[in-house]
Design a protein around this nucleic acid. Structure first.
Length: 442
DNA sequence: CCCCCCCC
């Protein structure tokens, strides 16, 4: 007779108002055992697991002391169990990779029973995020990725600052968003044989923590995450097809090597948008560059109902004696080498003001985290094109450097000349200093 | 009641 799923409580509905629940779940990850000294100086031990049920609900559970003794061995990744008699508390966002508002703790009262393999519970729940959207995430971010291994380094053993022996291996993943990012694998995963990484296999990596490193972004696969090599899931098939049907020869936007930070940006006077507004309204204003921390709020895609061009086709021939392309506007049958270049009107916002700025190619690439050809590729589908742009709204603070110059008349031309992700650590220190200066001043 | 997600 078929099992009645409703006999078990849905994980998604667990809260601290729930009484007398029993859940039936699969263990999808398991941490190592940690020992600790609690506040009243008692020694304790704990490990945690992630649990998935047949409705796709996920929750983190921590098992303490007696529960470790009773169930520590039994709970293994991939196996199914029923759990009851645990305590619910609001999840600590700092330590949970799952979206559930609550998490479970189990101690001496816990009831855990091994269940038969339950095929209606998935073995893993993935929330795969393409690499281009990783560029726009608030950091640190926890993501699941599906990409082609485009390169890998040898495993490297070293001792960490606090004396731990570690082995890491860096790989570079790329996906059909034409982006790539370096990801660090650790210990056993790092020490898989080289041949596992050869021949551009598709890998799914679950629970990658993404952080700012240097000028770019880098991932690190957490202990409780997962590494799947050439899995048969639709996302893997899609990425594999992209790679074999031209992706392998495409230019990739690297998140890890400062691709968005390349080139010489003018470093402007630190300002906010209202400072720029004031400066640009002054008649005596001479050319000046400002740097502002702000967000991209909107791109003007329509004007009085009319769709606006977002890029133009430019000549890419190199000028004589110059390494720069001439960038002359050409028609679509242009006889020189042509490439799309952005020309956008963007509204940028900070905490107190917002302003529309003409945003040319280099700056627009930074503001949108995308290449002009990626937008042009969608030219048959205006809605998809605009959706791709909307994706970047408010996603990431940008430093905007801006020169002001004249166009012969007294009218001041204000433009965005460069946009790049804010280095959060540096910016955080800057803000802290501002606060402490204010305290001193008061 | 734990809790770092390691490194350049």
């Amino acid at each position: 007779m078929a099992m009645v799923p409703s006999a078990f409580f849905p994980i998604a509905d667990l809260s601290n108002y729930t009484k007398g629940w029993t859940i039936r779940v699969r263990v999808t990850s398991k941490s190592g055992l940690r020992t600790f000294q609690s506040k009243n100086n008692e020694g304790g031990k704990v490990f945690s697991v992630e649990l998935l049920d047949c409705e796709g609900g996920e929750i983190k559970a921590s098992l303490f002391n007696n529960a470790v003794d009773n169930f520590g061995e039994m709970l293994q990744v991939g196996k199914c169990f029923t759990f009851s008699r645990g305590t619910l508390k609001v999840a600590n966002r700092n330590y949970s990779t799952l979206s559930h508002r609550y998490e479970l703790t189990f101690d001496r009262d816990a009831a855990v029973t091994e269940a038969n393999h339950d095929s209606i519970i998935d073995t893993m729940k993935l929330h795969i995020c393409d690499l281009r959207s990783v560029q726009a995430k608030i950091l640190p971010a926890n993501v699941d990725l599906c990409g082609v291994v485009v390169s890998f380094k040898a495993p490297h053993a070293f001792t960490s600052k606090d004396g731990k022996d570690l082995v890491k291996r860096e790989i570079v993943l790329a996906d059909d968003s034409c982006s790539s990012m370096e990801v660090t694998l650790w210990s056993d995963r790092a020490q898989k044989e080289d041949k596992e990484f050869e021949g551009n296999p598709v890998m799914v990596i679950k629970s990658v923590i993404v952080k700012e490193w240097g000028n770019g972004r880098k991932g690190s696969l957490l202990e409780t995450g997962a590494l799947l090599i050439s899995p048969s899931i639709p996302e893997a098939t899609k990425v594999r097809q992209w790679w074999s049907q031209g992706g392998s020869s495409q230019t990739l936007t690297a998140l890890s090597d400062g691709a968005f930070v390349g080139g010489k940006a003018p470093v402007g006077k630190s300002a906010c948008l209202s400072d720029i507004r004031v400066a640009s309204e002054q008649a005596t204003f001479s050319e000046e560059v400002f740097s502002v921390v702000c967000r991209l709020a909107i791109v003007q895609t329509k004007k009085q109902g009319e769709e606006q061009p977002l890029y133009y086709m430019a000549c890419m021939e190199l000028k004589d004696g110059n390494k720069l392309p001439c960038n002359r506007r050409v028609d679509s049958s242009g006889f020189c080498a042509v490439a799309p270049r952005f020309n956008l009107r963007c509204k940028f916002s900070d905490c107190e003001d917002s302003t529309w700025l003409t945003t040319f190619h280099e700056a627009a690439k930074g503001a949108l985290s995308m290449e002009a050809f990626e937008l042009k590729d969608l030219e048959q589908n205006r809605e998809a094109m605009e959706a791709a742009i909307r994706h970047s709204y408010f996603q990431q603070p940008w430093i905007r450097a801006k020169p002001d110059h004249y166009n012969g008349e007294s009218r001041t031309n204000v433009a965005c000349v460069d946009a790049r992700p804010v280095l959060l650590r540096e910016h955080g220190r800057f803000l802290l200093k501002e606060i402490s200066d204010m305290i001193v001043a008061s």
